[in-house]
Design a protein around this nucleic acid. Structure first.
Lengths: 153, 153
DNA sequence: AGAATCTCGATCCATTCAATCAAGGATTCG
DNA sequence: CGAATCCTTGATTGAATGGATCGAGATTCT
């Protein structure tokens, strides 16, 4: 699994929405400045998250985005799969995005068997983690180290 | 971590050499045809593995490649790091290829804390796996399912 | 109507990947 | 020695991907 900037932005935006989860919507520009994400790019990403069913939008003057379901129901693995594609380090061990590789005999490929284990450990971790966990961590981390916490330039 | 075709080829070539580990060298063209890897490309990759200290070469008529050290000493994580770069899914949690990310506060980034766990589980798995393990798996897999094993077209 | 905001497709540029090519050196065998 | 064989190095190509921006259109509120 490789998380591109796109995926990173998606998860950071979701965390932002999760921390302020409510029926009220939040504008792209607010998230953009708070999270330091290029606005136009974030636009694309939020739209993508919408078609994936993770957020919902409201247009017009008081428009913006909010989560489409409670944070506990948003599984990180699903988000990454939707934005980035396979979790697996190589196509031939992916469950959701399988691709045949060109090795002589896939069923007896030793590399494949190792990579399968890598995939499983990644998937296991990310399947059990939800946006609620991310939000909880964010809240916990926010309160740590209050000494430096004030040093925001 | 994402394994490109380049890394896949590198590990398959190493496995090939590992299965036939001896002072005698094996030619590029032999590995190329046996493993179904484009010869010119494999040339590049083996050369790269040589500068990484994983294999050594012998020139001339009876030239070729062999492992530079016993399979037990060749750690898969090192190979992947040399060929592909970071194991971590995102730069800001990489131990060997750290890159700062643009989130407002890296030390309190919830995403980073999750990705750190992913990185650790990947690294743990690949650090403890050596080429000897890969070879052992290959040998074990070779003997399974002997019914279909003969059907090589 | 008009302003604010999301929507959606087109486009751009830089980088990476996979692969090939070309020229040259080194080595060994006969 | 000379030729075959093979490694070495660097350049290059073509396709795909990633990051980002733009512009016009649709929607909603006031």
């Amino acid at each position: 699994m490789k998380l591109t900037v796109r995926g990173e932005y998606a998860l950071r935006a979701l965390t932002h929405l999760g921390l302020r989860h409510s029926p009220k919507v939040i504008q792209i520009s607010v998230i953009s400045t708070a999270e330091n994400i290029p606005k136009r790019f974030l636009e694309q990403i939020l739209n993508d998250l919408r078609t994936g069913g993770f957020v919902e939008s409201r247009r017009g003057v008081a428009g913006g985005y909010r989560l489409a379901k409670p944070p506990e129901k948003i599984v990180i693995a699903s988000v990454i799969r939707h934005i980035e594609g396979a979790l697996a380090p190589i196509g031939c061990v992916s469950e959701n995005y399988y691709e045949k590789c060109n090795c002589p005999d896939e069923a007896r490929c030793a590399l494949r068997s190792i990579m399968k284990e890598v995939r499983d450990s990644i998937a296991h971790l990310l399947e059990k983690t939800t946006l609620a966990d991310l939000v909880a961590r964010a809240e916990k981390l926010r309160s740590t180290d209050p000494a430096d916490a004030d040093f925001v330039i």
